[in-house]
């Protein structure tokens, strides 16, 4: 188990996904890797949380019941343009992913993925954010 490199304080991550079982487990796993995940179970909830607290990175599912992930992404980009957003897609549709990238997402991952892959992407997103 490799945590995010360095002796940083935990990385603050907002996890927006309506698949509750997935969100809960992933949060626990991230916590073990020095990433503090805040859970949001819908796009609306995620945006509300974003208004109140600061985050280093957002992990956003592209397909949710209430709002399209792309819409959420666009709103986030308007609110906090510098906040890196990594998209998660069960879709594995490159088209959607490309759309996300075009809309300003930092990167994307298709479900299911390897945890290390996610950690690497989070690390690189927060690192470049620091610079």
């Amino acid at each position: 188990m490799k945590p995010v490199e360095g002796n940083h304080p935990p990385i603050r991550l907002l996890l927006i996904d309506d698949e509750r079982g997935f969100v809960a487990t992933l949060s626990k796993r991230l916590a073990k890797r020095n990433v503090k995940a805040t859970q949001a179970f819908s796009g609306r909830e995620g945006i509300q949380i974003l208004r109140k607290a600061d985050f280093d990175v957002v992990l956003l599912d592209l397909k949710m019941e209430d709002m399209d992930g792309l819409e959420v992404l666009k709103i986030i980009k308007i609110m906090i343009p510098d906040l890196p957003v990594i998209m998660l897609s069960g879709h594995a549709s490159e088209e959607t992913a490309h759309n996300g990238m075009r809309a300003g997402a930092y990167d994307y991952l298709t479900k299911p993925y390897d945890i290390q892959e996610l950690i690497d992407k989070i690390a690189s997103a927060t690192k470049s954010d620091d610079e």
Partner: peptide
């Protein structure tokens, strides 16, 4: 195929996460 794949991917992700957590 797209419909099926998408429906399967989400449970797969949960299974993957659960397995990962157990490994942790």
């Amino acid at each position: 195929a797209a419909g099926i794949a998408h429906e399967i991917n989400n449970p797969l992700a949960v299974i993957g996460e659960k397995a990962g957590w157990m490994k942790d």
